[in-house]
């Protein structure tokens, strides 16, 4: 076990380095930056600014300077927002986090229930309906479903706000504030849940179908256990095992899945900041955010492998 963890850890470090390298060089390929596109600057002033931000140095040197800074928690300076990327991320990441967390919770609860139910009642009407919805949810372009929901619930029915986090000009506090934010969160959370629920339900269904065919389940039934005990205590435990490792991927997945949703709902999260930085050529922000998501994915991956190996010895013996 120790050896496995160590092996995976070293692998993780290599991947982290590789990823940061690729992200940096992708950005180094960009010919223009915020300074170039700002026409109000004189050439001398632009040169001065470039020297200040170290943009005039060779690429490899810039990479190591950048990496060194990243290790010290300095992710760069947003040229548009005129503040450090770290504080910018810190300011907006929680808005994304709260939506992602709620969506995560809903996704897992609903997917677990529907997945297990449609597995026990395979080929029933319920299974058919669930499968249909799963495929529909998997195939909706995120921007299209966001727009449709805004049109239906925001514009036509006028029961939910069309975007933002609070009403325009609102300065409510305390409970009223929470209620207001909650109301604005309904659509974004619903959409994020819808977008990620499909594949997860499939995983639960397949996992459950594999398990309930095994001999020990027949034994459990033969012992005269109640069906609910057989399903939820004996079968679910094993069916859930491979899926639980997905939990570690889900969060970064939700963050990147939220990019378009946040843009459309005008939700003040990191995804919107990221898209904004594309159009303003504010590349330090884009770079930092991509690195942040990649690190989350890599670390999540590592944790998933390690926990999986811890609970299932078959994995580490391979």
């Amino acid at each position: 076990m120790k050896q496995y963890v160590l092996q995976r850890f070293i692998q993780m470090i290599i991947i982290l380095f590789g990823t940061s390298f690729i992200i940096f060089f992708l950005f180094a390929m960009l010919p223009g930056d915020y300074i170039d596109s700002n026409l109000s600057l004189t050439p001398e002033r632009a040169q001065e600014l470039k020297a200040l931000y170290g943009l005039d140095q060779p690429m490899l040197q810039r990479y190591f300077t950048w990496l060194g800074n990243v290790f010290q928690g300095n992710l760069g300076y947003s040229l548009k927002h005129q503040e450090s990327v770290t504080s910018l991320l810190n300011k907006y990441v929680w808005n994304s986090f709260i939506v992602a967390l709620l969506a995560l919770f809903l996704t897992w609860t609903i997917a677990l229930l529907t997945g297990v139910l449609s597995a026990i009642k395979q080929y029933s009407l319920l299974d058919g309906i669930v499968t249909f919805f799963v495929f529909a949810a998997m195939s909706f372009p995120s921007f299209f479903i966001s727009l449709l929901f805004i049109k239906w619930f925001g514009v036509d029915l006028k029961i939910l706000p069309v975007g933002g986090m609070i009403d325009t000009g609102s300065n409510s506090t305390g409970f009223a504030y929470i209620l207001e934010v909650g109301k604005h969160m309904i659509l974004p959370v619903t959409i994020l849940t819808l977008l990620s629920i499909g594949s997860l339900t499939r995983y639960f269904r397949t996992g459950m179908l594999e398990v309930i065919r095994q001999d020990y389940i027949r034994t459990a039934r033969a012992k005269g256990l109640k069906e609910s005990v057989v399903i939820f205590k004996h079968a679910l435990k094993n069916a859930i095992l491979p899926v639980i490792t997905l939990l570690a991927f889900e969060l970064p997945g939700l963050f990147s899945g939220a990019i378009i949703m946040e843009q459309i709902f005008n939700w003040p999260g990191v995804g919107r900041i990221q898209l904004e930085s594309v159009s303003f050529r504010d590349y330090p922000v884009l770079m930092a955010f991509t690195l942040f998501l990649s690190c989350l994915t890599i670390i999540g991956n590592f944790l998933a492998d390690v926990t999986y190996a811890a609970v299932d010895p078959r994995i580490r013996l391979k």
Partner: peptide
């Protein structure tokens, strides 16, 4: 390892950068 590295950068942000 190259595949691992490319897979650990989430798809949409990676496409956004390349689009930019």
């Amino acid at each position: 390892r190259l595949a691992d590295i490319l897979m650990s950068i989430p798809g949409l942000p990676l496409l956004l950068i390349m689009g930019a």
